[in-house]
Lab assay of single mutants.
Amino acid sequence: QVALSRTQVCGILREELFQGDAFHQSDTHIFIIMGASGDLAKKKIYPTIWWLFRDGLLPENTFIVGYARSRLTVADIRKQSEPFFKATPEEKLKLEDFFARNSYVAGQYDDAASYQRLNSHMNALHLGSQANRLFYLALPPTVYEAVTKNIHESCMSQIGWNRIIVEKPFGRDLQSSDRLSNHISSLFREDQIYRIDHYLGKEMVQNLMVLRFANRIFGPIWNRDNIACVILTFKEPFGTEGRGGYFDEFGIIRDVMQNHLLQMLCLVAMEKPASTNSDDVRDEKVKVLKCISEVQANNVVLGQYVGNPDGEGEATKGYLDDPTVPRGSTTATFAAVVLYVENERWDGVPFILRCGKALNERKAEVRLQFHDVAGDIFHQQCKRNELVIRVQPNEAVYTKMMTKKPGMFFNPEESELDLTYGNRYKNVKLPDAYERLILDVFCGSQMHFVRSDELREAWRIFTPLLHQIELEKPKPIPYIYGSRGPTEADELMKRVGFQYEGTYKWVNPHKL
């Protein structure tokens, strides 16, 4: 086992960053958080920038500027975001240094004079007029057009580079997404736009490419001749908990499936790229999406959770019991969808996408189930092999396979070949997804960000279904809070070829 401390991990990262040409360590950078008073800024962006600063992973002359409508001070920003920093008493001095680099400007999102004030403020910072500028839009999409237009007109660096990070949702359907994309691309070049999907920053999602293309053993079996089906799962054990009003506007397909799960599907299904260059990788992902037809209604199961009468606390409440959810809402909190990649490698292999709230566990994984062994000599005792990439929690890679049961006879039983990170790298604290992705933006690497043509294809696949749901308002199937979801989803999976045995229990190697 390799035991690495946080300091050692960050030392390795620093070495990698400083050796590259793309990370300008000594240049002045300004990180501007648009929507600095909001939840995302408070819980994710400010803490992430602090962790990067604490670990010495930001360029040395980096300033952080918050911008929002609320009249706040840096002290206010500190008060609301610091509880999420997880700072230790030993880091007190470092924390003071961090907040000394912070400033805040209040202004409207659609007022040109406010942006001119913001620009004057940035120019007044040390070497601010020639600094590289990175704008993070932690804002609702309704203000994107006004904000990007004003940034472009008043706040661009004339000497350094300018980059803009856009948070999902990128529209509600193909038409609104196209409108937003066309607007942003009329102001910024594609190499300046970073559409963030934080799932692409997760260690195991990034590991998929290495697993596939750096190991000879997987190449020959990664196709329709050997793989019976692919299941991509995202499960949350909690409901909307008072935030249903926002969720109800989008629903589970827009929230998770059309982005996170579809991105994971691309990494499983794509061909080997010409290189690890950002556009070479994204070219292959677009090719996969172009091979997927629009979702067919007979390959869809929609569910909505109801309270568990035997549960406790939140578990007793259904989705419609959330006071922020519109009365009688038919918005799905669970969806199972089957897609097919219609190309030579994957023809006929079902890709089953499942996601839901208020389920029995927290889990995100990719599961490849292989065909049955031909010419069975073990009297149907063999179960199908599976390769599982567990994204969260407890990152893991393992192969479910058959071995001989101890004893006199040739009785096979299920076991696993474990390729888990935790076994080799004991207690290594890896940077989280937002840390990686923000560092990628500083480096100018777009590999783990969504390109406009990729986004367009993703919406093309799901828009007809979303429009049909909005028009017909089908009643989702009720499922109990804390269950596996509607049984109809299991029946759909069985119908397209997935075999669920229920006889195997994964042993978490992190707890051995």
Rank of each mutant, 00 (worst) to 15 (best):
R436K: 14
V496E: 14
G444V: 00
R362L: 09
E470T: 15
L262M: 13
Q468W: 12
D490P: 02
L387Y: 06
K475W: 11
V281P: 05
A364V: 11
F410R: 10
C355D: 03
P323K: 13
A374D: 15
R384I: 02
T276E: 08
K272P: 10
Q392N: 14
V268R: 02
L419N: 07
P412C: 11
R354I: 01
P326I: 07
C443V: 15
E470C: 10
V338K: 14
K317Y: 14
Q392S: 10
F370L: 11
C355E: 01
H379G: 13
D255C: 03
E386Y: 00
R424S: 06
P431V: 11
T420V: 08
V349W: 02
Y504Q: 06
A335T: 08
D280P: 10
V306F: 14
V391Q: 04
D310R: 13
L262Y: 02
G311S: 11
W506H: 05
M257R: 03
S293H: 13
V373H: 06
E294I: 11
I352S: 00
I438P: 01
E472M: 12
E470D: 11
E413Y: 08
R436W: 01
K405F: 15
L471G: 11
L359P: 03
Q296R: 15
Q392T: 10
P431M: 06
V450L: 07
L437W: 00
M401L: 09
M270P: 02
L466Y: 05
P273G: 00
Q499C: 12
F334W: 06
V295H: 08
E472Q: 15
M257D: 04
I389M: 10
E491S: 13
L261G: 06
E501R: 11
N385I: 03
N343V: 05
G485I: 00
K400P: 02
V450D: 02
M408I: 09
K285L: 01
C266R: 00
N394D: 15
P406W: 05
L387C: 06
Y340K: 13
A458K: 02
A335G: 14
V268Q: 03
D255W: 01
R460W: 04
A335S: 13
G348T: 06
L267E: 02
T331F: 03
F334G: 00
Q446V: 07
I469E: 09
A269K: 01
E271W: 00
P406Y: 01
V496Y: 13
S452W: 07
N394P: 04
K404I: 06
S329E: 05
L430T: 15
A364H: 04
R484H: 05
F410V: 12
L320P: 07
V306K: 12
Q304G: 00
K505P: 07
R362Y: 07
G303M: 03
R424V: 05
C355I: 04
Q258A: 08
M402F: 12
E342D: 15
R384W: 04
L261V: 10
A332I: 02
V428F: 13
T399Y: 13
G375L: 12
C291S: 15
D372H: 10
A315P: 13
E435Y: 05
Q446M: 10
L387T: 05
K317E: 13
A297Y: 11
N343A: 07
Y340V: 09
A489E: 06
P393S: 09
L339D: 00
D310E: 15
G444H: 07
C266P: 02
V391C: 03
P486Q: 03
H448S: 13
Y319A: 03
R367D: 07
L353G: 05
G348P: 01
F351L: 05
G356A: 03
L262N: 05
Y481V: 15
Q263V: 01
T316Y: 13
K317G: 14
G303P: 01
P393R: 06
I477P: 10
Y319W: 01
R254P: 05
I292W: 00
P406S: 07
K290M: 07
T333Q: 03
M408N: 04
Y305L: 02
A269D: 05
T276M: 06
F449C: 01
T316V: 10
I438M: 11
P464K: 10
E491F: 09
P431L: 06
T487R: 13
R456W: 08
S415M: 09
V301Q: 08
R456H: 08
G482L: 04
L339Q: 04
V391N: 04
R495W: 10
T463L: 02
A315Q: 14
V337A: 13
M270R: 00
S275F: 06
G307Q: 12
P309H: 09
K426E: 10
V428H: 15
Y481S: 09
A335E: 00
G307L: 07
L320K: 14
N411D: 14
I377P: 12
L471W: 12
T330P: 12
T324H: 08
E284L: 08
I480C: 12
N308Y: 09
P393V: 03
G444I: 05
E413G: 09
L267F: 05
S483E: 10
F378S: 05
V341M: 10
L387D: 02
I352G: 04
P431N: 13
M264E: 00
S452N: 15
F442L: 07
G485L: 05
K429Y: 12
P309K: 13
D372P: 13
F378V: 05
G485Y: 02
L387A: 07
F449S: 02
L419Q: 09
M447E: 00
A274C: 11
N299F: 09
V366M: 13
W506A: 04
V441W: 01
V268L: 13
Y425E: 05
N299A: 11
L368M: 12
C266L: 07
Q369P: 01
Q296K: 15
V281E: 04
E413L: 13
